[in-house]
Amino acid sequence: MPRSERSPLLLAGLPAASGVAHFVSPRQFDATVPRALPGAPRAWTYGSGVAELALAAGVALPRTRRVASLATVAFFVGVFPANVQMAVDWRHRPAPLRTAALARLPLQVPLVLWARGIAKRGEGRS
């Protein structure tokens, strides 16, 4: 498989794994839902899990890859406040957990750039 085909599939694997995790272990995601959002945190957890699974499928499929990659960029930017909330909430946790929560923040940048790059190249379009 050419490298240009692996990149979108690897990217698709990230929201796919996270989307599944939202249903397998929702409590950890409920805790990251910003308090300013209306409604029950669990609804946001499940909704974002569904969104991640849809994005993963869209990025994996050549026909929808470009649009889904752009939507993935928007999603990564949109969930950034939840990552900030997690970092704030975990500031008093043990060092490894606190470090993991803080590390998520700058990791959003390469994820956004990766998805944007796939969208720009229109990788895998048929």
Rank of each mutant, 00 (worst) to 15 (best):
A74N: 07
R27M: 00
A68N: 12
V20Q: 06
A74P: 06
R35Y: 05
Q28F: 09
V20G: 00
G49M: 04
L11C: 08
R63L: 09
L9D: 05
R63T: 01
F75W: 14
V20A: 14
A43I: 03
Q28P: 01
P8A: 08
P15Y: 04
D30V: 05
V73L: 12
V73N: 02
S18D: 13
V24C: 05
T32W: 09
Y46D: 02
Q85T: 06
A51R: 05
R42G: 05
G39K: 08
F23P: 02
L53E: 02
G58C: 11
R27P: 00
R35P: 01
V77D: 05
F23A: 07
F23K: 09
E52D: 14
G47N: 12
G47D: 08
A36C: 12
S69T: 06
L14I: 14
P81R: 03
A74M: 08
P34A: 10
A21T: 01
V73C: 13
P38H: 11
A43W: 10
Q28A: 13
V84D: 00
T64A: 15
V33E: 03
A68Q: 00
L14K: 05
D30C: 12
L53V: 07
T32C: 12
P8K: 03
R42Q: 10
V59Y: 00
G78Q: 07
S25K: 11
A16C: 15
L53G: 09
P8T: 05
T64R: 14
R27F: 01
L70D: 04
T72C: 14
A16F: 15
A36K: 09
V84K: 05
G47A: 10
A71C: 15
T45H: 06
A56N: 05
F75K: 00
G39H: 12
G13L: 14
V33H: 02
T45L: 11
V77Y: 11
S25Q: 08
P34S: 10
A57W: 13
Q85S: 12
F76Y: 06
F23L: 09
H22L: 07
G47Q: 15
S18T: 11
V24Y: 09
W44L: 04
V67P: 02
V50R: 06
S25A: 13
G13D: 13
P38Q: 08
L70C: 10
M86A: 11
A68R: 02
L9C: 03
A56E: 00
A87F: 03
S7V: 10
S7M: 13
G13Q: 13
T72R: 05
V84H: 09
A21R: 11
P62C: 12
E52I: 02
G39Y: 09
P34T: 05
L61I: 06
H22M: 08
A87Y: 03
P62I: 06
A43S: 10
R27W: 01
Y46R: 15
L10F: 14
L9I: 02
R66I: 00
A36M: 10
A43D: 07
G13M: 12
A40R: 15
A31I: 01
P15K: 01
V59P: 00
G47M: 10
P8M: 10
S69Q: 07
A56L: 11
A68G: 08
D30W: 03
Q85F: 02
A56F: 03
V59Q: 02
A74I: 03
A40Q: 13
L70N: 01
